[in-house]
Design a binder for these strands. Structure first.
Lengths: 230, 230
DNA sequence: CTCTTGAAATGACCGGCGATCAGTTATATA
DNA sequence: TATATAACTGATCGCCGGTCATTTCAAGAG
């Protein structure tokens, strides 16, 4: 009991955060605790009071750093998006097949346990209850990421910039739609009838994503290069 | 004040529902009130107490007809799915282009104001907090609908059964991913900077869905019929 | 070294939520 | 008409996100 005093390493602010840097640092610490907690319990069971407890604060203090629960999640989303972007782009190699590209995209997106659950709730939940200016700021982060994706995609898939942007947009759509089934309740293997098990198996997200990603990339590739004309 | 007594038409149960039919009827009346209310306020703002008030009951009574809020929404989802299925299949004509098929699918799905908002929340929210047996029952409704869709699709697009099933599965994925942007906050036209407006415009759901639906249908069509071989 | 001051932090508090259940009441039947 | 049964009620529960008057602490002034 009484786990105050020194927390971690050199910086160790258990005192009040007064300077702007200290406040930013504390905010980031809270975000890291929040992300761990979020990975444990998911979106719906995540409570601000519990988060405060885990971060060694009191609920009211959280609201000095985040105006609403949703604004906190929006920040987590931005960070996970940028993190995933780095990992995905970093995983691409010079010339790639559509299939290899789709596989990298899928596996890196799933690897980050926070990204997809946040992405899936972005429009219907998170973006409501957030100020317009904060939302604009977030959209700009998104624009930057889309551009980075498009550039890398254009290179490795040998597509025009316009084609690459089209690919990126559609990959997002497909990723959300295909991984939706992974977000259902974890009924594991318990006594589901065969017809339902077969249904679930037929909606397995990985082949669903990859097969359709390839179809779309090849479709886009074919559109701008009519094979028999000019 | 005092709007008891006769409610509507001939049946008019303001009394207790005793027989199984009366109970089923009352349940259906509640569902209809719930759907109207849901269309007004959406998922998050929907409260059981308000619903009870609108249905002329008390909150506790609702829980005699639905075990949880989510089970009520699951029922609304099933009904809207079947309703849409009828409308969509009924709107198909004998031989159709991929594009016409995609357009019908998109427009009929959007027309029913309740279907997409429920579908989008199905796995991450609704299916949690519902009994396993109820979930199995719901999945079977879904299986039946998929089969009906596949049959109609096979006919109008002139595809094999396996191809048609693949089309149907993928259309669902695409529909959810593409219409996600419609679920954001309604920021209308108010003072969004141009870059953000351009982003939103570029993610407009209709062209996003239709272009990619066509790409995928054509991709699936091409897979089983290699043009230069056999 | 002490005092002042203003912002960081607190915790009690708010209204509303989904859900529960002991008690009430209407009604079909004997 | 009396009785048993189950549909219905409404008070109550614990918890939620969010607020705010008050307290506390550290940096800068003297």
């Amino acid at each position: 009991m009484g786990d105050k005093a020194v927390v971690s390493g050199i910086v160790a602010i258990n005192q009040r955060a007064r300077s702007a840097e200290q406040k930013a640092l504390r905010r980031q610490v809270v975000l890291e605790v929040a992300e761990t907690y979020f990975r444990e319990v998911g979106y719906e069971a995540f409570s601000m009071a519990q988060l405060a407890k885990k971060a060694g604060l009191v609920k009211g203090t959280l609201y000095l750093y985040f105006t609403t629960r949703e604004e906190l999640f929006l920040t987590l989303y931005e960070q996970s998006l940028m993190r995933w972007g780095q990992v995905f782009i970093g995983s691409l190699s010079e010339p790639m097949t559509s299939r290899a590209y789709a596989e990298r995209l899928y596996s890196t997106a799933l690897m980050d346990g926070a990204f997809l659950p946040l992405l899936i709730r972005l429009e219907h939940v998170i973006e409501h209850n957030v100020s317009i200016s904060r939302l604009i700021q977030s959209k700009r982060v998104f624009i930057r990421q889309v551009e980075a994706f498009a550039e890398a995609t254009s290179t490795v898939l040998q597509l025009s910039e316009a084609q690459a942007r089209e690919v990126v947009k559609t990959m997002g759509v497909l990723l959300i739609g295909a991984t939706r089934s992974d977000q259902g309740p974890s009924l594991d293997n318990e006594a589901l009838p065969q017809d339902v098990q077969a249904l679930i198996a037929s909606f397995a997200s990985e082949p669903l994503f990859i097969k359709n990603a390839v179809r779309i990339i090849e479709g886009i590739r074919a559109e701008a290069a009519p094979p028999s004309n000019q």
